[in-house]
Simulated assay, not measured.
Amino acid sequence: MTILNKATCLAVLLSGALAVGAQAETTIRIGTVLAPDDPMGQGLDKFAAEVADATGGEVNIEVFHNSQLGDTTEMLDQARAGAGVGTVTDVARLSEFVPSLAIMSAPFLFDTYEDADTFAQSDAYLGWGDELEEKAGLVMLASNWYQGPRHALTQMPVTGPADLDGVRMRTIGAPVWIETIRAMGAEPTPIAWGEVYSALQLGTIDAAEAQPTAIKGAKLYEVIKNVTKTGHIQLVTALVVSADAWNELSDEHKQIVRDLAVENGRYASGLTIELGEKALEDVAASGVTISEVDLAPFKEAVAPVYEMLNLTSEADMVREVLAK
Rank of each mutant, 00 (worst) to 15 (best):
L4I: 04
N5P: 00
A7F: 02
A7G: 02
S15H: 02
G16R: 01
G21N: 07
A24G: 01
T27R: 06
T27M: 00
I28D: 01
V33I: 11
L34M: 08
A35T: 14
D38Q: 11
G43K: 01
D53F: 03
D53T: 14
A54D: 07
A54N: 06
A54E: 10
G56Q: 10
H65M: 09
N66M: 10
T72S: 13
L76M: 10
G84Y: 02
G84P: 06
V85T: 10
G86C: 00
E96K: 06
F97S: 04
E114Q: 12
A120V: 00
S122R: 13
S122H: 11
S122P: 04
Y125C: 03
L126V: 12
L132Q: 05
E133R: 13
A136V: 09
L138K: 02
L138W: 03
M140Q: 11
N144T: 07
Y146L: 12
T154G: 04
V158F: 03
P161E: 11
V167G: 03
R168E: 05
T171Y: 00
T171R: 01
P175L: 02
W177C: 11
I178W: 00
R182S: 11
E187Q: 13
E187W: 02
T189N: 14
P190T: 04
L200E: 04
Q201A: 15
Q201W: 06
T204M: 14
I205L: 12
E209T: 15
A210G: 12
T213P: 04
A214S: 15
A214H: 15
Y221N: 15
E222T: 09
V223C: 07
T228H: 13
G231N: 12
H232N: 13
L235I: 03
L239C: 11
A245V: 06
L249G: 09
K254S: 05
K254E: 10
Q255P: 04
R258S: 09
V262M: 00
N264W: 01
N264M: 07
T272E: 05
T272P: 07
L275N: 13
G276Q: 07
G276L: 08
E277F: 08
K278P: 10
E281D: 15
P297N: 11
F298V: 08
A303T: 14
P304Y: 12
V305T: 08
T312P: 12
A315F: 08
M317W: 11
